[in-house]
Design a protein around this nucleic acid. Structure first.
Lengths: 358, 358
DNA sequence: CAATTTCATGTAATCCATTACATTGCACCG
DNA sequence: CGGTGCAATGTAATGGATTACATGAAATTG
């Protein structure tokens, strides 16, 4: 039958992609068992729990495994055991250096606990987030750490194996780890106030993200404490990119309002802001002070070096992963939100308000 | 034979990790088939190739699937079909912005072809690389794109489903996509020469990476063409980090050799170099010109903005993925090395050699 | 109208490893 | 010496989806 075998009827849908002709399958336990003259069970045991196999058998099997170059099929294993020991970390944007440090923390804890981490870049797209989340529903991964302010829907029963890092969602069922953005932002603005600044502009992040709302809240709260009326004309909104920071400054300057300091919702926008200010002939920090948020690696290397709010990036990652693994080990642990604190790092981009403004 | 025998049953190896008590298993085709009053085959078909199932049945099944919240178990599917439609991209360092753009290119092509991409950060560790590569041997992924100058061993028969991007290995069996680093580096150094520089320092990258050797080669070749004797005292080696760039400058300056320009093997080291130069009272570019390599996103935002060699990052990623998918579809395609070209981007960190040096 | 396709669906084999349960053999006990 | 316990290993069920092959009904053909 099918002497030629190859392209039978093979009718295919239109949206389909070419299919590999290559069903190269690897070695199986069976082959190893045969070669080693033992049963499949013994081979499996020799590999999974060597201590319950006799010394001689174990060595013999290991030798055969090595000689034949056998790697157990993880799909079969995971199918059977219903665990993958794999965590997917969703990051909105690899290009954003803020996340790299968080990832480090995630990987550290994951590896300590015998998990592997795979990263999925979502570029803020819900579709992409959902696609990666579906891997959990499809049992290809055990859990998810997401750094967007959203939790994808996963149609499984019981607790969602999802932890929110850096961001958080209202849903009290979802574990989160993040910093106290209100306080952190207020601290930064307070610092500007102590430097004598009164007209402090604010470059906000996307309002869809709760942490951005919080940062704005902190900004307003600090002003309020100092009995300074909020001036909506001093606020611009950006999307976290360097370019957005530049555009925000263009906008602020075009409004004709004077200001002697800018607080930015993240470092990249601060970098853009500094650049735009300089290209408009303002000196940083002599004319205008700039403060960022995150303390990305490059913040130290801008000139002037950026004063910013340092998030405990590594700790955020570590803590999130710890929570996720806890939850994977025991779905009954109560959900919790863990709030870390962030510290202001003073560098060269801030200075006391100069006597003659503008 | 376990003379110890202490904890009888449930005895576990020492390196073991806690095991979840939760074998929460999801819905299965069987349940859906039962609920929809059809056979499992029909359910599977309705989901995989809807066009071969009758309109009515298909709709009915889809309704049931939705109602019951069913997601097919990908492990079972992949086990059966021996394909995962998953590509793992190994990147040495997420913190390095160079790779982000490459990843973009990878994801674009992958998605167009119905593949998902997962990223594995290796931090240059062979062990980590190997761990991710093993996923292919274990059939958890179809192929690998690696951005290190190494190809992990994968014990499978036939062609290794591996493509090297940005870097390349000697092995002619392995597909690679990279830029002509020799020419690119030479172009950059030529440019410095046309600006009148004669004493050009070089900050090399790790010599373990062929592309770094090539960049050094390009540097030397350009000097040679200009009949300038190579001066080993003007070369320092770094590991691609900003800090390495700073240290390299410290070293070069400490040697007491004068130089009016520095060519760096990547942008981050160039950023570090600029910073170190400035903190030593040298002006960039008035006293010393600096050139980088890669054209990372931040290169445009340093002050002065960095002159650098722009790699076609997106194209590198796209091309590598195209190759990999080709190879996955037909393991018989001949291996090839694809060399793209890189362009010099002139910005503010370079200037003609000033008349009075030092 | 009988013969032949075609279509829609069902039955059951298959992918590969894990593991509950069964079996064997030996040491040790009273 | 028969019985008990344990270590080592084997047999076979299991996980969940895909799909070759089989079947029956409807459509087409001469």
């Amino acid at each position: 039958m099918s002497a030629d075998g190859s392209r039978r009827k093979r009718q295919r849908g239109k949206g389909d992609h070419p299919v590999a002709a290559q069903p190269v399958r690897g070695k199986t336990v069976k082959e190893i068992a045969a070669a080693a003259n033992v049963s499949v069970a013994t081979v499996s045991r020799a590999l999974q729990r060597p201590e319950i196999v006799s010394e001689a058998t174990r060595q013999h099997i290991q030798e055969v495994v090595k000689r034949l170059g056998y790697t157990p099929n993880a799909l079969a294993r995971n199918l059977r055991t219903a665990r993958t020991r794999l965590i997917v970390a969703l990051l909105p944007d690899i290009a954003n250096p803020f996340f790299s440090e968080v990832i480090r923390g995630i990987e550290q804890v994951a590896h300590e606990s015998g998990y592997s981490v795979l990263l999925g870049e979502t570029q803020g797209s819900l579709v992409r987030e959902q696609a990666y989340a579906d891997m959990v529903a499809a049992r290809q991964a055990d859990g998810i750490i997401t750094m967007s302010p959203r939790v994808p829907a996963i149609p499984i029963q019981g607790r969602l194996p999802v932890v929110n890092a850096c961001e958080y969602v209202k849903d009290s069922q979802i574990c989160s780890v993040y910093v106290d953005n209100v306080t952190a932002a207020a601290t930064a603005v307070d610092y500007l106030l102590t430097l004598g600044h009164r007209e402090i502009a604010f470059i906000a992040g996307p309002p869809s993200s709760p942490i951005c709302v919080d940062r704005e809240l902190g900004y307003q709260r600090a002003l309020q404490h100092a009995r300074i009326a909020a001036n909506p004309a001093l606020t611009a909104v950006g999307d976290f990119s360097i370019e957005a920071g530049e555009r925000a400054i263009e906008l602020l300057l075009s409004r004709g309002q004077s200001f002697s300091a800018v607080f930015c919702s993240n470092d990249e926008m601060a970098i853009g802001a500094m650049r735009a200010l300089i290209s408009h002939g303002r000196r940083v920090p002599e004319d205008i002070s700039v403060v960022g948020f995150d303390d990305i690696r490059f913040a130290r290397y801008t000139s002037p070096a950026l004063t910013t709010v340092a998030q405990p990036k590594n700790a955020l990652g570590r803590e999130a992963t710890t929570m996720l693994i806890e939850l994977l080990n025991d779905p009954a642990v109560p959900p919790r939100k863990r709030v870390l604190s962030a510290d202001l790092v003073v560098r060269g981009s801030t200075a006391p308000r100069s006597p003659k403004p503008r």
